[in-house]
Simulated assay, not measured.
Amino acid sequence: MGHWSVPARPDIVCICGSARFVAEMRDAVRDLTLRGIIPLAPAEMDGAVSAEQKAHLDALHRHKIDLADRVLVVNPGGYVGASTASEIAYARAAGKPVSFTDQPEDAAGADNGES
């Protein structure tokens, strides 16, 4: 099997970000997986979802944040939308470290040393 091994308990990282960054989130899933990290990503939805489905998906994603050791915000160009900002606030309230792929447009949204 070679020299690559998975630690006894790999880190779990929840990926957050705008639905417009599906390709970038897929890249993050691949990169984290290849580094031996378990990624938890938002569900990919083709087409529109109802308000009820959106509420269900948001609640499910908060459970993914609960399961994770930390959160990675995929935010090309620094963009953080309202839904992602809500997830960041939820993660921070739960004591989860939050890091960003890009410096947020609102620099106050970044943790010191975590961007």
Rank of each mutant, 00 (worst) to 15 (best):
P104D: 03
H63E: 09
G36P: 02
A68R: 04
R26Q: 15
A85S: 15
D102L: 08
L72R: 01
H63R: 13
S115V: 11
S18E: 08
I65Q: 01
I65K: 00
G78R: 01
V29R: 05
L60C: 11
A85K: 11
I38S: 14
V71C: 03
L57W: 07
G109E: 09
G36H: 07
H61P: 04
G78A: 06
A48D: 08
M25Q: 04
R70W: 05
G77T: 00
V74G: 02
P104E: 06
A55R: 07
K54T: 10
A108Q: 13
A51V: 08
G81F: 06
R35V: 12
E87V: 07
S115K: 07
S50K: 07
I65Y: 00
I65D: 03
R35L: 12
V71L: 05
S86W: 10
D102V: 07
V49A: 11
D27C: 12
S99H: 07
R62I: 07
G2L: 12
E105P: 12
K64G: 05
V74D: 00
K96F: 09
A43K: 08
V73W: 02
M45C: 07
E52H: 06
V22N: 12
P7W: 07
A68C: 06
I37M: 06
P42T: 01
A8R: 15
L34Y: 14
V13N: 04
P76L: 09
P76H: 02
I65V: 11
S50D: 07
H3L: 12
V49I: 14
F100P: 12
S99T: 03
A93C: 08
K96S: 04
S86H: 14
D46A: 14
L67I: 10
